[in-house]
Design a protein around this nucleic acid. Sequence first.
DNA 1: CCACGGCCTGATTC
DNA 2: AGAATCAGGCCGT
Length: 283
Amino acid sequence: MLMSIDQPLDLASTLLSGQAFRWRQEGTWFHGVVFGNSVMIRPSEGGVELLSSPDDERALAPLLRDYLGLDTDLDGIYASLSRDDRLRAAIGRYPGMRVLRQDPWECLISFICSSASNIRRITGNVESICTSFGRPISMDGPVRHTFPTPHELARADASELRELGLGYRAEYIAATARTVAAGDVDLMSLREDSYDDALQALVALDGVGDKVANCALLFALDKLDAFPVDVWIERALSEWYLDGRKLSRRDMRLWARDHFGPYSGYANHYLFYDRRLMGARSQ
DNA sequence: CCACGGCCTGATTC
DNA sequence: AGAATCAGGCCGT
């Protein structure tokens, strides 16, 4: 079915920019797993064409709108961020790249996987977790699996996770899965909490520091002012904004929110994407 | 509070 | 070719 959209949306940069790890591009189609469904979408006149399985497209469409963050007024954010010259240029290069509104649990575990890793490996690790502990989706075409629930993943032993190539992150994932499955934290409810409260709850979890927590806050928990500082952002800020001043990563985060304002998370993702493409070209 | 080294692993660089 | 280094960090000292 056709899902009509009146907001700027670029599927490639949105789905493949390293905020989510389960989307694959095949020609004009993007294939992913969300809301327990295998989903295919592609750009179409006035919106996107949507195919889903096993659920009906009409049931998936509103969920997908939410996931894609289509309630967010992107032009308003662009207007706010364009006061910064470098951001205005980056927005001009990647118009329609949106911050997703993902499932907090899947997002958090994915970013625990990300520490000292790279996108290719993270993608493979997350897929392995799904294949081993998720539920197969019945459908035509390539078989894919859901991301395991906290309860499903809590059954995983750290050594089983290590066998998937997760390395030292295996212990973190097993521990955090058990904590969440036990109900010690309600990740979804963190959407209603303040940034500071949600951050505090997240960094209490194993394998979750300031950076990973800020990824979950930005990509899943409605905190558009979250600002994850990784090596790419560190380089971008040092070189483009800080003029040689040395700041800790935490201080960079505080500086950035002050400088970029309430949508600093969007600024972060544009800087990250820009910087990473730049690095990919020169390396 | 900050700095530093260790930690799994696989791709890339030297 | 085989050894360092790096890759979207976290944790303990």
